[in-house]
Structures are given as structure tokens and as C-alpha cells.
Amino acid sequence: MNYRKLGKTGFSISEISLGTWQVGGRWGEPFSHANADQILNAAVDAGINFIDTADVYGDGESEKAVGRLVRSRSERIFVATKCGRRLQPHTADAYQPAALRQFVEDSLRNMQLETLDLVQLHCPPTDVYYRPEIFELFDRLREEGKILNLGVSIEKVEEGLKAIEFPNVTTVQVIFNMFRQRPLELFFKEAARRDIGLIVRVPLASGLLTGKFSPQTHFAPDDHRAFNRHGEAFDKGETFAGVDYNTGLEAVAELQAVLGNQAPLAAQALRWILMFDEVSCVIPGASSPEQILANLKAADLPALSTEQMQAVREVYDRKIRPLVHYTW
């Protein structure tokens, strides 16, 4: 396992880490603690030391599983969670320091930990990034020993650029993959200049970049890949990186042709992300221990060639950029 510095947190974290949106059950399935324990322990056994969760994953059950893992292992495991999405309605006005403080304390209780390594605002509405009192709260929480660091999880580049103006923001979690390349233009440079840790989520565009889907692929009704393709439940960009499904399949076929079959497309897609030094880690999800091991193979792949990197960019510029580039 290779490790990278998580910005000004100073943490040395596994460059391929773990996101836990679907840990404990595939999308659309009930949470299974037995499955979660297997996946989480397999991750740590393989050298992963950074786990990303959220209070809304499994309605708090994911946090409980992550906390149980941390308490049961001797290794230093860095835990990141998120807060804010429990607000109903999820509006800028609903973001109030008292509510966010309660969410952090609930997360501590769920995980049975005294301190959280990283708490991230969970994709709040854009207006929240213009309210200093929200960010000041986390200085108080750090002084009280409840958190070590504040981060944000964003939908839009604009939000990331605004967030990193606050000196207590140490990390930004961003969607970045072969189908979502806009962060490269300005945001990565600004994040590096301010020593911000970059956590990459949705690296496989909700599975599109595995190359395993087809027009006939069926998704369960309660799987976001079935019900959120047009942003019906939350930001459209969280599902297939906002790319139209059939267009995505066409682009995937072209990527497979230019990258070849020396390694699975999913591993090559993860390796592509790791080509950028600004990235601290990528957090693909896993619904089985076997998926953990498959994801980790990306770290052992050779660097993509200049020609391959150019080919990926060409597919993006021609098939994807006109549809989504300026949306996020």
C-alpha cells in the first residue's frame, strides 16, 4: 500500500481507502453488520487506514460498524464522517450551529469514540459556504476535543473554492473521475496551494467505469442508480457522475478500446485518478471483501502512459464535456 499526506491534517493515509456508503449491504439492501465487519476488517488487513462514513449511511449503522472496527483494532485508523444531511428539509436555513453540534455528538455516540479525526459538512447548499458562523462552530468543537479536523464534501467546484478560504478547512471531498474532470482546471491548483487534502469520491461513476454495465442492466427500485438519474432525490451528480447512462456506456466502450485489457477498466480508472499528485486518496466503496482486493490492484498498476492519458481526455472532451462539464 502506498500512503499520501492528507493536506494540513498531517495524516499519512492509504492512497486507496474506503468509502462506506454501501458497506453492510448493496444499494437497495438492508444493512448487515456481519457483512460490514468482514469488509472493514479486510480493508485494514490490506493496509487501508482511512475510512469515510456518514451519519446517514444506513441511518447511523455504518458509523456504528466503523466505530466497532476502530475499537477492535490496534492499528491507527483514521475516521472521517459527515454531518448535515439529516436536516429535513435539507436547506441552507436549516444549517444552524446547534443542529450541527448535535449531529457531531450523535456521531461520537454512534461510534463510541472520544474524538473524530475528521468531520465533513455533507454537501450543504451553496449558500452555507458564505456563512462564517457555521465554520466557526468547528473551531469550538476542536477546542473541546470532540474533533481534530474540519472538511467539506462538495458538489460544485465553486463550493470547494469558497470553502478553502476558511483557514480551518483541511480537506475537501470531491467527485473526480474520467467522466468528471473539471476540478483539474482550477480547483486542484488552489487546493494544492493551500495544502488541502483531496478525497476523491464516486471514482467509478457509480459503477459505470467498471465496464460491467449494459443497456440491459437492472437496478433495484430502491437503488439510487434507478431512482436518482435525474436528481429526483439528491444531486444528480452523485449518480453516474451526472452522465446520461447510455452516453456513459458509449464512452466506456471507447475507453476500453483505448486502454486495452491488460487490467480491468475499474482498476485503470482508479489508477488514472492516482496519476494526479494533488489527490490524497480515493475512496471507492465495496460491498464484499473481494471488491476491496480488486480495488487495491489499481495501486500496483504501472502509470498510464502519456498517450493513454491523452486518449482519456479526448474521450471526455468529445463525449462528456459538452453535457456536464460546467454543471458542477
Rank of each mutant, 00 (worst) to 15 (best):
N2K: 14
Y3W: 14
R4G: 03
L6M: 15
K8N: 11
K8L: 11
K8Q: 13
G10I: 13
F11T: 15
I13D: 07
I16F: 15
S17M: 04
W21M: 03
Q22V: 10
G24P: 00
G24L: 02
G25A: 04
G25R: 04
N35D: 07
A36Y: 01
I39D: 02
L40C: 05
L40M: 08
N41C: 13
D45W: 12
A46C: 10
I48M: 12
N49K: 08
G67P: 01
V70E: 05
V70K: 06
S72H: 07
V79H: 01
V79S: 09
A80W: 02
C83Y: 03
G84A: 07
R85F: 10
D93E: 13
A94M: 13
Q96G: 08
P97E: 11
P97D: 04
L100I: 11
Q102L: 13
V104W: 04
E105S: 08
L108M: 15
Q112S: 15
Q112W: 13
E114I: 09
L116I: 14
C123P: 01
C123Y: 01
Y130I: 06
Y130F: 14
P132G: 14
E133R: 08
F135Y: 00
L141M: 06
R142L: 05
E143Q: 14
G151I: 07
G151H: 04
S153T: 03
E158D: 11
E165Y: 06
V174T: 02
F179I: 01
P183I: 00
K189M: 07
K189T: 14
A191E: 04
D195S: 09
I199N: 00
P203D: 01
L208D: 10
L209R: 13
T217N: 08
H218F: 10
F219D: 03
P221F: 11
P221K: 14
R229E: 01
G231I: 07
G231Y: 13
E232Q: 15
F234W: 12
K236F: 02
T239Y: 04
G242T: 08
G242L: 04
Y245D: 11
L249A: 10
L255A: 05
Q256A: 14
G260P: 02
G260V: 08
N261R: 13
A263S: 13
Q268D: 10
E278V: 06
V279M: 04
C281A: 02
I283W: 02
A286H: 08
P289R: 03
Q291E: 14
Q291F: 01
L293T: 06
N295I: 05
K297W: 15
A303I: 00
T306D: 15
E314S: 12
Y316S: 00
D317C: 06
P322Y: 08
H325K: 02
